[in-house]
Nucleic acid binder design. Structure first.
Length: 565
RNA sequence: GCGUUCGUAGCUCAGCUGGAUAGAGCACUCGCCUUCUAAGCGAGCGGUCUCAGGUUCGAAUCCUGACGGACGUACCA
């Protein structure tokens, strides 16, 4: 339900009645309980524009707002409008929520095609922690858009086409000579060995460079080796995605090499548009307000990632028909994307109404605030980090309840992975993120465990309730009223999160919801014998809707719930 | 040097695009289990929103400058 829109509409109608047309009406949550449920602060601005007294306008508005949704309207201070939502109306809406399938959230009537470009690992090495944020944030956004009814196209822009591959293929051939590919099981070590040889041995380095040319000119044997290599590397990624519970599949892969054939025509298009200039032998686009140009073709004729990115935009525009393209990539590349986006629009490679967005995120730091590394300064493999998360989660729950080993392990997987994801998604993505095991695996505060615990508590009650759930929600206490308001605000929150591409909007909502639920739970007995049947049913319904909302919210974030914890 | 970005409680972070007395968690101090999971709930402590100006009825939020940090800065991605 688009809760705030309903209220905004009421205000709009009232404005209409008193003959004023405001710019945009947006009520906000009341900042204090005394102010009711929602407040509208826009009267002051409107009054100023018209040169009228804000209080007069506010009073006029208040007189013209009617309907069973609102129980009380107050004008406070210089012209704040405080809105109280009617308890009965709220109760009936929560009852509707209870009886609906998708929490009364309607799919968009005119779905947009949204391309989400995320994860994008380099095939030369195994995935490391540097890929974690893009993968998690991108996946949650894709889920979110999809849930709201958009047409989502996931794109995994893997790095499979670059100078390192000559080196790797040369080494692969030299060491293996057609033999098995077993050693590739540890890609990281393989890369290091190849790199060492490349640095130490001039002949080998020369050979590696020849291989780059060979691959790019379509040498059959080399391409076969290359393909084999990519397949194995991609399987590593799939293993990580599976462990992480990420929705990406091999079908979503559009590698750099995929755009290879398009590159000459992209350059041509840029030439025709008149944007291209040659500087020091390289083909460049000089951007407004930027000293450094965007280089699209090297002086030796080779292409760069700017070229591939432009080709990808063209593909997404021409073939995928995207309305919005989200690049979930490290914030350090913001200038690169600004240049690429500007060029794509200016040259006509992409329609002017397509929204190109860099969904930037900050660096992952360790507890002491330094970039996340192993003890000896190396990169941390993502798979190792995920395994550690499960082990730590298992340790956290092992001596708590009487779980069997199997139960404990499957719980640990859900809890550990959930914790890693939640802690990442719960902070504003643009700031740097401090990775802290203890904090993320805590039951206190804004963590996945706290949400999962609340969910499990509700499930426990629902399991014990053996009667039929027949009746409606009747809101008694203030806390129930507040809980209802929260439950009905879910769609507003999801739409805002989708609009701004900010998953942390969802986590903070869930945290608020769960906090309120916990308070409700503490002070409102449900199953106790002295609770009247209608109250019991009402509270069961509230709890059920709360559970579904928690589950759905976490599901969008890619996090599972458990019935027992 | 130039550019981007950030600076909110001891620590980790919110703050809904300018609203009323700036909020959480951790840490610290108290209180609450013969009742649905106490892995919980409640109360207290803790602030010159880096600093200085400006815009206006009103600024953590917008504009300018300073200071401090992170990142980027032409043929890697």
């Amino acid at each position: 339900m688009k809760f705030k829109s309903l209220i905004n509409d009421k205000l709009q109608a009232a404005f209409c009645k008193i003959g004023i047309t405001p710019d945009m009406i947006a009520v906000s949550d009341a900042s204090k309980p005394e102010f009711g449920d929602f407040q509208y602060n826009g009267v002051m601005a409107v009054a100023k524009k018209l040169g009228r007294n804000p209080r007069d306008i506010a009073l006029l508005l208040a007189d013209n707002i009617h309907g069973d949704m609102i129980s009380k309207i107050e004008v406070a201070g210089p012209g704040f409008i405080n809105i109280h939502i009617d308890k009965e109306w709220l109760g009936s809406k929560v009852t509707e929520l209870f009886n609906s399938k998708d929490l009364t959230i309607e799919k968009n009537q005119n779905p947009k095609t949204i391309v989400v470009d995320y994860s994008g690992p380099n095939m030369a090495k195994e995935m490391h922690v540097g890929h974690l944020r893009s993968t998690i944030i991108g996946d949650s956004l894709a889920n979110l858009f999809e849930f709201l009814g958009e047409r989502v196209i996931r794109q995994n822009h893997i790095g499979d086409w670059g100078t390192q591959f000559g080196m790797l293929i040369a080494y692969l051939e030299e060491v293996h000579q057609n033999s098995s590919f077993d050693e590739l099981k540890n890609l990281e070590d393989f890369y290091k060995l190849a790199k060492k040889k490349f640095d130490d041995n001039l002949d080998f380095a020369k050979k590696a460079r020849e291989y780059v040319v060979k691959i790019q000119s379509g040498d059959k044997h080399c391409l076969e080796l290359w393909k084999k290599f990519i397949d194995i590397s991609l399987s590593h990624c799939d293993e990580v995605y599976k462990k992480l519970g990420v929705t990406l599949t091999k079908e979503d892969v559009r590698a750099e090499s995929f755009y290879n054939d398009m590159l000459p025509s992209v350059i041509e298009k840029l030439e025709l548009s008149g944007l291209l200039q040659i500087s020091d032998g390289a083909k460049c686009i000089f951007l407004p307000n930027s000293e450094v140009p965007l280089i699209v073709q090297k002086s030796d004729g080779g292409y760069l990632y700017a070229s591939t990115d432009l080709a990808a935009i063209k593909y997404r525009n021409d073939v995928l028909k995207a309305d919005r393209i989200c690049y979930v990539v490290d914030a350090r590349q913001s200038e690169h994307f600004a240049g690429v986006f500007w060029t794509a629009k200016e040259s006509g490679l992409c329609n002017s109404d397509v929204v190109l967005e860099h969904i930037a995120f900050g660096t992952m730091m360790d507890k002491s605030g330094k970039p996340f590394k192993t003890r000896d300064g190396g990169t941390v493999k993502l798979i190792d980090l995920l395994d550690e998360a499960v082990i730590r989660a298992e340790g956290a729950i092992k001596d708590r309840a009487n779980f069997s080993n199997d139960e404990a392990l499957s719980l640990a997987k859900i809890i550990g992975i959930g914790a890693v994801k939640y802690s990442d998604l719960s902070i504003n993505r643009e700031s740097n993120y401090i990775f802290d095991w203890d904090k993320m695996l805590s039951f206190d505060g804004n963590t996945s465990l706290y949400m999962q615990y609340a969910y499990a508590r509700i499930q426990s009650i629902l399991k014990k309730f053996d009667g039929e759930i027949f009746g409606s929600v009747e809101l008694g206490s203030d806390i129930e009223h507040k809980l209802a308001i929260m439950l009905l605000s879910f769609e507003d929150i999801l739409r805002r999160a989708a609009n701004d591409a900010t998953p942390h909007t969802i986590t903070s909502y869930l945290y608020d919801l769960v906090t309120i639920f916990m308070r409700f739970y503490e002070q409102s007995p449900i199953l106790r014998d002295d609770v009247p049947y209608n109250v019991k049913v009402s509270r069961i319904m509230l709890s059920t809707v709360a559970a579904r909302t928690i589950k759905k919210g976490l599901e969008i974030l890619g996090i599972e719930v458990v019935d027992r914890l």
